[in-house]
């Protein structure tokens, strides 16, 4: 059954995405932890993604150029942790638990506002936002797992306009906050992405979403930063491959694009 469907028919190459492609990564109901990311160029690739999570599974089919322009959530199950009975909606699961397992300890149902979409997720009180993004919502971009102690910046997100580290935040403390991840920044077609690709401030790429989120947080407040300001803003992020020297260049290029430069 389809819980939510979100389509865009713009069939453009991924290179053109900042101009007019419909990129619906963060805007979809649920992202995914993928088996294989499609990044072929020019092929209309179809990718089926499945999120495995405690309490349910989600199957997502993505179709389109580059594999991510059209994303359709085709199935989502809510599973009772006590008897494994599946439900189609969260409300049905809640009712079942109240009726069949009164007083049972169960993870909190929490509403999160991520990239402008409201999510109801069920997590234990000790779950970090990083863990929720990754294992409940399948948003692997902004939940990169490097240090797990707030030292590397790989799991950076923007919360109510502030750059924060999702590995050091409890999910329950994020209720009522507006959270922005790399998927949302991509969906918004922010010029910082094109700047990073043009400058190629990328090597293996694992840490790059964290850098881009930090760059976007800076540019939101200061759209025309100096090199020193850019260096300071990104100094909480680590890169092992050594893209560090090009990070500032990418941020300055993004500022140029924001102001209408090519």
């Amino acid at each position: 059954m389809t819980e939510k469907e979100n389509k865009n028919s713009n069939g453009v190459s991924r290179r053109e995405f900042l101009k007019d492609a419909g990129l619906l990564v963060g805007g979809t109901a649920i992202g995914s932890t993928v088996l294989l990311a499609a990044c072929g160029d020019g092929d209309g690739t179809t990718v089926t993604k499945t999120v495995t999570e405690p309490g349910g599974t989600t199957t997502i089919t993505s179709t389109g150029t580059g594999g991510i322009e059209t994303t359709t959530v085709t199935e989502r199950k809510f599973v009772c942790p006590y008897d494994n009975i599946e439900f189609d909606t969260l409300d049905e699961l809640k009712a079942h638990i109240e009726a069949e397992h009164p007083g049972a300890a169960i993870g909190e149902f929490t509403e999160l506002d991520i990239n402008g979409t409201k999510y109801n997720v069920q997590v234990d009180n000790n779950w970090t936002l990083q863990r929720t993004l990754r294992y409940k919502l399948g948003l692997i971009g902004s939940s990169k797992d490097w240090c797990n102690q707030g030292a590397c910046g790989a799991c950076s997100v923007i919360m109510d306009g502030r750059l924060v580290l999702s590995c050091t935040l409890l999910t329950k403390d994020c209720v009522g906050k507006k959270i922005e991840t790399i998927e949302g920044i991509a969906a918004a077609k922010h010029p910082v992405l094109q700047a990073y690709m043009d400058v190629e401030a990328i090597q293996c790429g694992y840490c790059i979403p964290g850098f881009i989120v930090a760059a976007k947080a800076l540019l939101d407040k200061n759209p025309n930063p100096t090199a020193q300001e850019a260096a300071e803003a990104l100094s909480g992020n680590l890169c092992r491959c050594s893209t560090t020297p090009r990070q500032v260049t990418a941020v300055l290029k993004a500022a140029e694009y924001l102001q209408g430069g090519n």
Partner: peptide, 9 residues
């Protein structure tokens, strides 16, 4: 592209 959009797995 998949790297900057957070899609690279």
């Amino acid at each position: 592209y998949p790297i900057v959009t957070g899609q690279a797995a």
